[in-house]
Design a protein around this nucleic acid. Structure first.
Lengths: 337, 337
DNA sequence: GCTGGCACTCTCGGTGCCCGTTTGCCAGTC
DNA sequence: GACTGGCAAACGGGCACCGAGAGTGCCAGC
């Protein structure tokens, strides 16, 4: 028996099932694909594929549908890459290039990604930790309070209000500014957090408590993971395409998408290019029947992740192409900015 | 025939229908509420209420369900105010008080509001236009670019990158800073936008193009509506409680919630305290069968709106109480900060 | 190794039936 | 005049039943 044909059969089943969303039988298969053999032969292949765990049948006398393992095989070895159309590329590029700031880039990415894939899109804000310090500002507020603002190379602005142990004099404020900037400018956030700590001892003992308060806040801001934790979700109305039972399929996904923890984990384990995780591979039982297509984006200054979440029975080549394309454009935009 | 009893009947029907989600018949009604009359009498009342447009029946031999007009009457004249339990109040207060910044406050508000009401919650960012300028910063970037940062009394930070006609010298930068701040500090954004424009002429003619560029960006930032347009949506998984048909009830709502335009309109027309809009009153056909409970929050410095969206058959007293309470706490927090 | 044929299984849609609920109406009562 | 009890009629939900259709597994034959 030819192994090649069996794989062809698996590919054909995945493609047909994705297209029709209905279990595919041996006859329909030979009719739609010119496999050159009879349904009976296909049935034998199917039986083997089922034994090996690539296929399953909903009930005894129905066609086969792929298992998670089947999809995995399809993605790894059977799918042919599908490039986006030039029109789609242009649309992505044009839409994203109208962004006015980082918030806007993220918003637009979510939108374009969900529209392109008809799935739920998830985009993480550009990472702070790998980016560098572009500016630090300390602003005196009323009373014994101050505002610390950090601006990073990725264009993000983080601010914190602090309660000071004593009032901030103009003199000290100027001092702080002039000494802070040279130390941290251009440093990676992790470096800056260290360097700024050394600064305390260069001030007069009287001022040290106050400086320490400012420095503590800065350190906290520099090493804050929260901006990584900012994740935007869009396209949830695409969940309607599930068509099927609401409570068993859509609801768990909606709930998962509202859990920061889940989102972070889904996006966190992506290192390089386009990664696909199917069903149990996501690490969440509630996402059974679903798959996540993710990709890192951006260079050192803004590295983070974006992804789509959709039914396991999705158009993998198309989705992967869309995710890759959006990741590429978003990365380019952020690194240019 | 007693008008009072008819209204009691309407109230009872709304309450029962909200609780059971099933059409309520005359017998069930007399059993559950001690109305002191027989089912037959109730039937007569029901017939009148139906004639007047407060009730309808899904089909000939089923119980009655309230119409939008029926809910409206219930909300306006029949609902008894339901206060939140002390435990709930404390929970809201504690959870919100842990917020570290404005982003966080908004996030937490959405969360607490959706959990409290088991509905979809929508919270608009505090308005910029009514708040005042706390700080303005101009930062020189590489080349001929600069970053303008505006910090407002409501704690929001807005930043813009600008391409300058000529390089920004240290001297000019210092000049800009020292002259900008006194002019705009404490001014309302709308005022500041005007005042800052007058500033151009106080600079040397050579510098004016560059200053003009900065001022233009500032003006734009001051009068930018975009931050009003930032709206966070949460609790969409509560839509699962609709139980019913997905495509006809849940999908339109999900789609509406992804449309900024719709959200803005829903939140925009709320002036004072808690406002309820039922079915067609929302102005969107796609929200038929749903109701929006909204409230403005915050004082002059941060005025904006939050709301919940849920099925018209909702627990109005409870939802209204929750919306009012969250609005109160959020407003307090923002005005303190 | 592939094929056609055949018996078997299972789902799905349609039909008919019964049951319970609720209504509307009417005649009777306080 | 307002309320009540009784009663026929309407209607949906649930259930069993049936036949059609699709698909499988297996086997004997090429």
């Amino acid at each position: 028996m030819s192994d090649d044909r069996r794989l062809d059969v698996l590919r054909a089943i995945v493609e047909d099932y994705v297209a029709t969303q209905e279990p595919v039988g041996s006859r329909a298969l030979v009719e739609r694909h010119h496999l050159g053999v009879s349904p009976a032969t296909i049935r034998n292949d199917m039986a083997v594929l089922e034994d090996e765990g690539y296929l399953t049948q909903p009930h005894t006398s129905a066609g086969r549908i792929p298992t998670d393992k089947g999809y995995r095989m399809f993605v790894d070895r059977l799918a042919t890459v599908k490039a986006l159309s030039p029109a789609e590329r242009r649309a992505i590029e044009r839409f994203l290039s109208e962004s006015v700031d980082v918030d806007d880039i993220v918003q637009r990415s979510v939108r374009v990604l969900s529209q392109l894939t008809s799935q739920v899109a998830v985009v993480q804000y550009p990472s702070l930790t790998r980016s560098t310090v572009r500016h630090v500002e300390v602003v005196a507020l009323d009373g014994d309070r101050a505002l610390v603002v950090v601006i990073t190379s990725s264009g993000r602005v983080e601010q914190r209000t602090i309660d000071l142990p004593s009032p901030l004099t103009d003199q000290l404020l100027a001092d702080l500014r002039s000494r802070l900037m040279p130390v941290v400018l251009g440093e990676r956030l992790s470096e800056a957090a260290v360097k700024v700590a050394d600064l305390i001892h260069t001030f007069e003992p009287v001022d040290q408590p106050l400086v320490a308060a400012v420095v503590a806040t800065l350190t906290q801001t520099f090493s804050d993971e929260r901006s990584d934790a900012r994740i935007v979700v869009g396209g949830t109305s695409n969940l309607a395409r599930y068509g099927a039972e609401f409570d068993t399929t859509v609801r768990p996904v909606l709930e998962a998408l509202e859990e920061q923890v889940v989102l972070l984990k889904l996006l966190g384990e992506v290192s390089g290019g386009v990664t696909v995780r199917i069903g149990g591979e996501t690490g969440f039982d509630t996402l059974a029947g679903n798959a996540v297509v993710a990709s890192a984006y951006g260079g050192d200054g803004s590295r983070a992740t974006l992804a789509t979440v959709g039914p396991a029975r999705m158009d993998y080549p198309g989705t992967m192409a869309a995710v890759a394309a959006v990741a590429r454009y978003v990365g380019r935009m952020l690194d240019d900015a």
